[in-house]
Design a protein around this nucleic acid. Sequence first.
DNA 1: TCCGGAGTTTGTTTCAGAGCAACGTTTGGT
DNA 2: ACCAAACGTTGCTCTGAAACAAACTCCGGA
Lengths: 231, 231
Amino acid sequence: MPKLDQSLLSGLPPFSLLQPQQIREILDHAVSRRYEEGATIFREGHDADRFYLLLDGYLRVVRTTPGGDQIIVLHISPGQLFGIAPALQRATYPATSIAAAESIALSWPAGLWPEFVSSYPGFATESYKTLGQRLGQIQETLTEMATQAVEKRIACALLRMANQSGRKTAEGIEIAFPVTRQNISEMTGTTLHTVSRLLSAWQKDGVVQSTRKHIVVTDPHRLVILSGIQS
Amino acid sequence: MPKLDQSLLSGLPPFSLLQPQQIREILDHAVSRRYEEGATIFREGHDADRFYLLLDGYLRVVRTTPGGDQIIVLHISPGQLFGIAPALQRATYPATSIAAAESIALSWPAGLWPEFVSSYPGFATESYKTLGQRLGQIQETLTEMATQAVEKRIACALLRMANQSGRKTAEGIEIAFPVTRQNISEMTGTTLHTVSRLLSAWQKDGVVQSTRKHIVVTDPHRLVILSGIQS
DNA sequence: TCCGGAGTTTGTTTCAGAGCAACGTTTGGT
DNA sequence: ACCAAACGTTGCTCTGAAACAAACTCCGGA
């Protein structure tokens, strides 16, 4: 178990109002674990017995259809709570979460949630705020999926990843975790073939630059235009 | 303002644990309003200054794209809280809600939410439970949208409406509020043309029976098969 | 009773994108 | 250093569903 430090939590919104003593309490009850790329943190349908906080890395939250198709519902970045089904009175997790890159997460038993909410000021507020954002985000994805053509959906997906995890580099905005064409197709409800073709075309146009599992958005502005977002 | 009665609330999950005195308090702060079919309760992007409870009728929760396309994110049935953006620390509503049939709703100022949560036992728990279900439901719709063909999506949409608002009649399960082909197309991300064709075909096969704005599922079992759900 | 608009049906045309197939390339394990 | 597996590319075909077009039917209001 890695060494845990107060500073890990004190900078994060759900815990930022707390006293050092309280943070110590929280860490005392936490289990810390490292997950390799591709490892599963919890599975859809399993007992929702813990809730989690991602310290480092990136996660994919994934649902599988009875037919075996997968789709990526959202990504989790460091500092975010996830697997908070227990807070919503759910008996089981509604989706699977998988490490997109090597990741570290803390977790607590589900039974501790009410205690966190009542004992730690701002914790409930911040958690439900996150939840609200997530709900809004999914609604947006749904809308997009229902109304936009494949090309725009893929552009949006790239922009969303760039926004959430983008590192600025000399060439452009680099997506901070490994992404395959298959992954993008699972975010947009298309096939890896179509994604591959589009990415090639965009690369030719100088909008993106990609090697296997690694994407840099070289011309964000043009991608925004392709995504069809206006404002 | 219609007359409000204790029994209106005492049977609903968020309030079922409360004392008559507490319910009286809640009603004292509530505003009750009637909405005609097609009326807007609140609009996407507007200040989230109230939260609501649907007493009677049915609502559509709708999002509009910059391009002017609409999609129906979910339906609200009597007894459900809605417009609870304030509870999620959102400044604005993320979607528009429209009365699908003549409806009656109570509402309270956003500022009262924290008080409800702290004063009324079980209120927070039940509300967040509803929220969890809704999140799960939207994730499911998203998955469906991303992986299933139009025919299956429409079958699923019909089943969902039948489930949520179905009245058992001699002919089958009747959807309790007015639905146009256009509406169904907005739930499934297709065109009213495609919906019309499919509904006609299914009518010929004896699976559904529909007149304008009114649908009865005559053979639910066959519709389940068409929807591709297995278990 | 007639009119107009909202909702529905049906036919035809068109094309984006899925499906299939085959091949190329990178990567990590032994 | 090699091999196998994972990942990516590209061409071709074919179909599901959108787009376009044109009536038809029902309903409420003047």
